[in-house]
Computed example of a mutant assay.
Amino acid sequence: MRVVLNSLHDEVASRLRERIFAGELAPGGFLDEPALCAEMGISRTPLREALKVLTAEGLLRHEPRRGCFVAEITERDLDEIFPVIALLEGRCAFEAATHASDAELAALAHLHDKLERAARARRINEYYAVNFAIHEAIITLADNRWLAQVIGDLRKILKLARLQQLHAPGRLEQSLSEHLAVFAALKARDAEGAEAAMRTHLTRQRVALRELARQQKSRLSA
């Protein structure tokens, strides 16, 4: 019976996580537990277990005597998270340069070809998808489950912000150049160079996001 319960609350957590990432459950929004139970056809127990999981992941915040709310990501949160994830993914690039086989680097080359085609055609949604696949591939090549776990947790938080840094002027071309620099270091087995290039790539993402936020604020105040 316990196995069934665990499986159910994991499924409920997954469904709620997807709705949060899709924006169906908006940042700051209150989670109406009775309504969710009725909608999902479940009892309070698996729902509450799922809410605990999502709260531990940072996707929800729990307020005593009030309930759960979808977490909101602030500019300060982004300022604090990006340096950390830059360090972690930089280390992944370092370890990938050390561990990756020639065949694995050839597969990564194929992804970078797709990235270049998407950038030239300015297909931003496709670029985002390939960009994500490249980051995931480098994390996998690092073969360090602790790095992968912590990065995965931080990425969930960043996903809440629905970041669109490629819409900043010139950012698409800059991002492609940064990716190619990381890949060049990986091919050269330059672990320190790959680490530095990846950290630069993620640091510049934050710079682009900050500039977008500044532009949006300027437009609203005009």
Rank of each mutant, 00 (worst) to 15 (best):
A197L: 02
V70F: 09
H135Q: 13
D10G: 05
H179K: 04
L108S: 09
W146D: 12
Q174P: 07
D102Q: 11
I85A: 01
Q205K: 11
S175P: 03
A13Q: 01
K187H: 06
R199Y: 00
E11I: 11
E173Q: 14
R123N: 12
E211K: 07
A100C: 08
D153I: 10
K156S: 07
F132W: 13
H110V: 15
H167W: 13
K114I: 08
I151L: 10
R66A: 15
A97L: 01
L47R: 02
R189G: 03
H62N: 05
M198L: 03
E24K: 05
E89Y: 00
R171C: 07
E89P: 07
E80S: 14
I20M: 02
L88W: 01
R214M: 06
L154H: 11
F183T: 02
A118K: 09
T98G: 00
P34N: 12
E173C: 05
E72F: 01
L54I: 05
L180S: 05
T55R: 05
A13S: 14
A103H: 02
A103V: 05
L5G: 06
R206Q: 15
Q149C: 12
E63R: 15
H179I: 10
E57C: 00
R117V: 11
D190S: 02
A208L: 01
L54M: 04
R145Y: 00
A106L: 10
E89N: 09
L5F: 12
S177K: 14
G29M: 10
L158A: 11
L172S: 02
L36R: 08
S7Y: 01
T140K: 12
S101Q: 06
C37T: 13
K217P: 04
M40H: 03
C37D: 05
T200M: 05
A96P: 06
A185G: 01
A56W: 06
C68W: 14
A188T: 12
L158F: 10
A103T: 09
V12R: 00
A97R: 00
I138S: 05
L220A: 14
D77V: 07
V3T: 13
N131Q: 13
V3P: 00
A142Q: 01
F183Q: 07
S177N: 13
E126I: 08
